[in-house]
Computed example of a mutant assay.
Amino acid sequence: MNDSLGFRCGFVAIVGRPNVGKSTLMNHLIGQKISITSKKAQTTRHKITGIYTDHETQFIFVDTPGFQTKHRNALNDRLNQNVTETLAGVDVIFWVVEALNVGHEDEQLLKFFPKHVPVILVVNKQDKVKDKLHLHNFVNDLMQRHHFAQMEVVSAKHGQRLGELLQKARLFLPEGIPLYPEEMITDKSERFLATEIVREKLFRYMGEELPYAMNVEVESFTVEESGLKRIHIAVLVDKDSQKGMLIGKSGEKLKKISTEARIDMEKLFDAKVFLKVWVKVKSGWADDVRFLKELGL
């Protein structure tokens, strides 16, 4: 690795309203899936750090939760606080918006950005726009209304123009040696990644039926001498009726979720996994501040 004076290393915050493609963007930037993606809003609840290192730069990505304004409770207040605290300590911000679709919810995020941190406008989902002149005018309008340090139009899903985006971001990172080993892609533990994988399957198979007040926690995570990882995970819901929805008829839905989660874990951990997932009812957990602290939220 080149650790000469020209090497740069710094933190990049990925910010935007729910469903603009923040998690997909980070997963493609680092080349591996560590942040869950879903069409359901508010899937990311923790600051997930992804790391990408090449011969001249180490980018440390922070995938923040989208600001939540529709549901006010202790959980969302804490999520919003996480975003503002994260932005204060980064070197550059990616403000991710959806091509041709910027509204009040997008623009209200700008007021939370620290004035000393450069902001790069990232217009995502360009592949969905057929009228390129319309897209060009859309970008120009945004650039004229707000002061951005740089701009890039990308398709995170298809990996288009992500290299150009990284080169623009590099200019704002300080010179210095890498903070993490070259092969490291995240600072998150396997316990944390296991819960993220289960949560993604829940979002995928439940869709709009998924309870908003739902969380996943590891109850035990052990590694046997053979290398087998034995993982027990509980899904927390608010009501008994939600428990039945998650389990499904004869337990088929939960079995399918567990099987697919186990397969993804084995790929990510490069090891055999025994996974047990069950559903627990804890009424009012999303408004219980003390309980949220215990979960690390």
Rank of each mutant, 00 (worst) to 15 (best):
G6S: 14
R8L: 11
G10P: 00
G10I: 10
F11P: 03
V15S: 04
G21M: 05
S23Y: 10
K33G: 07
K33N: 12
I34N: 08
K39M: 11
T44F: 12
T44G: 03
R45T: 09
H46W: 09
K47I: 15
I48W: 05
G50F: 08
T57A: 13
I60Y: 03
T64R: 05
G66H: 07
G66E: 02
Q68A: 13
H71R: 15
N73P: 07
A74D: 14
L75P: 04
N76H: 15
N76T: 15
L79K: 00
Q81D: 15
T86R: 06
L87V: 01
A88M: 12
V90P: 02
I93P: 00
W95H: 10
L100P: 09
N101M: 15
V102A: 13
D106H: 06
D106A: 04
L110N: 10
F113C: 04
H116Y: 09
N124W: 05
K125I: 12
D127I: 15
K130Y: 12
K130M: 10
L133R: 10
H134E: 15
L135V: 12
H136F: 11
V139P: 02
N140I: 00
N140K: 00
A149Q: 09
Q150F: 10
Q150E: 14
Q150N: 12
M151A: 10
S155G: 00
K157L: 15
L162P: 03
G163V: 00
E164I: 08
L166F: 02
Q167N: 14
L171P: 02
E175M: 13
I177L: 13
P178V: 02
Y180S: 09
T186A: 05
R191V: 13
A194Y: 03
A194K: 05
V198I: 12
R199Q: 09
R199S: 07
E208V: 12
E209V: 02
P211M: 09
P211K: 11
M214Q: 01
M214N: 02
G227H: 04
I231W: 08
I231M: 06
A234E: 10
V237Q: 07
V237P: 06
D238L: 05
D238A: 03
S241A: 14
S241G: 02
G244W: 11
M245L: 14
S250K: 15
S250A: 14
K253N: 05
K253G: 01
D264N: 06
D264A: 10
E266I: 08
E266Y: 06
K267C: 00
F269R: 09
D270L: 06
A271L: 09
K272G: 01
K272P: 01
V273R: 03
F274L: 12
K276Q: 11
K276N: 08
G284N: 13
W285C: 01
W285V: 01
D288K: 08
K293E: 15
E294N: 03
L295E: 08
